[in-house]
Write a protein that binds this DNA or RNA. Sequence first.
DNA 1: ACATTGCACATAACACTGTTATAGTTAATC
DNA 2: GATTAACTATAACAGTGTTATGTGCAATGT
Lengths: 194, 194
Amino acid sequence: MSDAKSIILQAASELFLEGGTSALSVRAISKRAGVSTIGIYSHFKGKQGILDELYIEGFRKVFAAMDILKSAKGPRETILQGVKGYLEVADKYEAHYRLIFGESDPGYFPSEEARDIAEKAFKLLIEVSSLILPKETPIAKKQRIALEIWAFVHGYVSLKHHAISTLISPDEWNTLALNALSTHIDAIISKHAS
Amino acid sequence: MSDAKSIILQAASELFLEGGTSALSVRAISKRAGVSTIGIYSHFKGKQGILDELYIEGFRKVFAAMDILKSAKGPRETILQGVKGYLEVADKYEAHYRLIFGESDPGYFPSEEARDIAEKAFKLLIEVSSLILPKETPIAKKQRIALEIWAFVHGYVSLKHHAISTLISPDEWNTLALNALSTHIDAIISKHAS
DNA sequence: ACATTGCACATAACACTGTTATAGTTAATC
DNA sequence: GATTAACTATAACAGTGTTATGTGCAATGT
């Protein structure tokens, strides 16, 4: 990546972390990066290109947080540890998380490259969640179970972002999510006894 | 509600259903409603006011879909029926659903009145989900269980809106959600045996 | 060594957004 | 009949993403 390109991306990432989407205008990025507005279009495909990069950046962080297959104790604990990492990333990089789930810029749709890394992250999730299933489990079922876990965890994160979230203290959310997940994983284990 | 007010709201609702947020500009609304742009500001509090009305409209539909306490058979079936209704509303009024969960307009934050009806809907959900719990269950725990169910269902809806959703056929989503919820509700019942 | 090509630059413009100020018209009330 | 209130249209302001135009600089080809 050329100098100008990485400088622009750095500026965009900073602005994004500081003030979310509303701080992320083409002019603001170019101003902080010290390039002209048109630079955003010559180095990236406009704002869509910038958002793609941030989208990918976000998924990379999710990816890293879940990539703990080696440090495993039991399958159950490994999954819960992955969930914990996911929740922490969602907190720490809230702007990225919101972008990934369309809460930032309506009209933004991830490019093929961006969707690719999203799919890769999902495949990693399938790997992790397959730990509690018998080895001979068909891949379609493994996928369904991974989806169950993801939907559950993401549901908590998304509700936390909702206005209703004031009913519950911010610190409590992750604990609630982990407890609920714990219950559900036990249910999965006993249902598809390995 | 005065004539002009309801005409404006009708126009806004139509545009919203047709093209989501991107079709919902102040000028477009006023044009379709046959009023001047400033009419949006005299009858509502600008665009924020319009969005508030649509937000409330959306929650009313969720509310209606879940208000099936009377038609109950068993507690388990009643909840699952409520979930089914929720999923159908989320499909039919996708634009409203996205607005409620911030996927439409970053920068929009619901007014106090709008947040009130959201809270009322959550209280109804607490009522419904309490059906599977012993009567003497403390309200805090009832709230946690309701949150579990909501997070789970909403997680499915939200993932369905995500780019990754192409991995699964559209028709399958609701079935998957209902099955997963079914498993989880059984887990709750057996854990907090009533 | 000179000409050409291509890339990055700045400036400005275009079409849009939400919002507001100004001014004109119409209807109801006193 | 005069006043007041509510509507209207037009235009402006400060933003947004994007693009056209023209300038300069560095590398390339002959």
